[in-house]
Amino acid sequence: MRRARLDVLRDWRFWLLAIAGLSLVVALVMPRLTLTRQARDLLLVIDVTGSMNVRDYIEGGEPVSRLATAKRAARALLAELPCQSRLGLAIFTERRSFLLFEPAEVCENFAAMDGAIDTIDWRMAWEGDSYVARGLHSALAIADSLPADLVFLTDGQEAPPLAGGELPAYEGEPGKVTGLLVGVGAAEPSPIPKYNEDGREIGFYAEQDVPQENRSGPPPADAPSRAGWNPRNAPWGGEPATGTEHLSAMREEALRRLAAQTGLGFAALRDPAALSAAVEADTRAHPVEVRVDISGIPAGLALLALTALFGLGALTGRRPERLPA
């Protein structure tokens, strides 16, 4: 009897079976592992001003607007955020950011948040102006009060243009709110679609439809050299300003300056699916505990052992061993 048992112990098949059985027992009794994941609290602000209607992204061969691309990127980001992350949503137009909802947990409320991002529309804009720098400053104030990290998607088109190209002063403390300024749009200028009051598209903005120069505040230093300049009657020169403000490109240089002023990171949005990587790099993560089932690892080992057992059995041929003497 003892001899027979030893025979079994010398057989590799027995050992493979034993490994498989043991692995399964381990899989059954293994407690769920508590892992820490990197969750984030984000405030997502989407620019809904008119220049976001510029169609300078190509998707499946069709031109799509900056706003549609920004929304797609935002939805992809929402889907990528690990559970227990929190996301709030705001829109920017005129000179402020307008909070739609405060950050809430993303997994439980996914459908509602996804729907909320999807319904964002340029028609929600209450004013045609686009003071991006001020909008960003107000978004930073909101993010600071929540608190959350900021992800601000904009094309950086200031309308009217900044007076003398100077950024308005930032009153907050740069770097207090971490986050990311995302530049939406292509580097080449494109015409901006124009809509009538019923929201129908009626062509594009022409040069004289938009302010080409900011004429509030003191005139620039070079004004006396302009044609028709008169210190009292025509302090900005006698001719209407010309320029390319009716065409819109993503103002990368201006956005980088703005990011530097406020201590945010900057990323240009080329691929909507890549936003979450940029957000991960520039926002703070806080560890949250999630319980993960890792019983698959020993169970996989069991499967491997069984496959090896039966596979080797099949490969070693069907010929019986030598006949007993």
């Binding site: 459908a111 509602a112 929600m124």
Partner: peptide, 16 residues
């Protein structure tokens, strides 16, 4: 401004 579609999940409603 649409803020949230109809939802059963009230946490985000309260956030709004």
């Amino acid at each position: 401004m649409p803020v949230l579609p109809l939802t059963d999940h009230h946490e985000v409603v309260r956030a709004a």
